[in-house]
Amino acid sequence: MKHKTFLWFFLPSGMAMFLFIAMPIVSVLTQSVFAPHEQVIREVENCTLFGCSKATQIDQEATRALREAEPMGRFVGPSIYTDRNHLAFAEVAGIWRNASGLGNFFGQVTNLPFYDALSFTLTYTALVTPLSLVLGLIIALAVNGLPRLFRGPVIFVSLLPMIVTPLVGALILFWMIDARGILGAALQALAGDPGLSVKASTPLMWAMLIVYGVWSSAPFAFVIYYAGLQTVPGDTLESAMIDGASRWERIRYVILPHLLPLTTFMALIKIMDNFRVFEPIVSFSAGAHAKSLSYFIYSDLGGETRLLSSAAATSVLTIAGIIVLLSPVLVRTWHAFGRVRA
């Protein structure tokens, strides 16, 4: 295809991505090094009969004029990145000097807002990704053993947790684990503690969010693994059986290696998705116990005072995190492409 034709075909899509994905990244980068203008303070002298006194007052007009002249705010360099709400260099250094051990150090660092969000996001990603893959694989193996007649309905039901809107799916679970809901009541009965409430406990909240994560992403793994199982080479399986391989050995040496490329693909997709975990925290109103990076940005953006600069700095750090997570894949794809070309 000629370059010029390519350009015309690709233009609408390319423009949309350029204007609304690439430019916002630039916008986030610039916003993160600017802070809103402070109010202009003017000193005025109040003279009465008994003498003069100086007082400071806010010059509304000058403030407005300044804000209109430079809507970006004042340039502050990287200071937003290093402040207490983000990378908190000074605080981390202080904790490092005073901490009594490595555990204590990490314990204190994760009390800082940014590291708190980062630690939840990484824990969530690191647990939900493998757990949902394993659960999906087991479901796929089980469905593969079913008579053909039952497979359709089983796949239909299994798709539901994945298809449903994340905010809505999380709400449905949240209402059930409410202290007055069916699962909440069951938990209380199991623990023998009528005062038990998931909403009030940080570890339980984390556990529930992870349960939701596995529940909603296992179907994806299931569907992919199930499709993969349909293409397992029959000859190889048969010869493995003739050679006397047990059921477990056949799974271990024939089926799993066949599914490995699918696993890498899914791990990539799921890491991207889990790293942006956001809606369940809104649904569970878990903000007090568990914050993800996305939720951190959301809570900065919402509310009375929109903390745009702070949100922008967190966004830049999140994007950096994504690129670090994806870098092995990007490097590998690049090498693979180089081989194809050569």
Binding site: M17, F20, I21, A22, M23, P24, I25, V26, S27, V28, Q31, P71, M72, M272, F275, R276, F278, L293, S294, I297, Y298, D300, L301, R306, L308, A311, A312, T314, S315, T318, I319, I322, I323, L326, L330
Partner: peptide, 18 residues
Amino acid sequence: SLVFRAMPPITLVSGYLL
């Protein structure tokens, strides 16, 4: 576009608002 696919939408939203 694979990298773009990985961007959490909320990070882009914080770029749109201003």
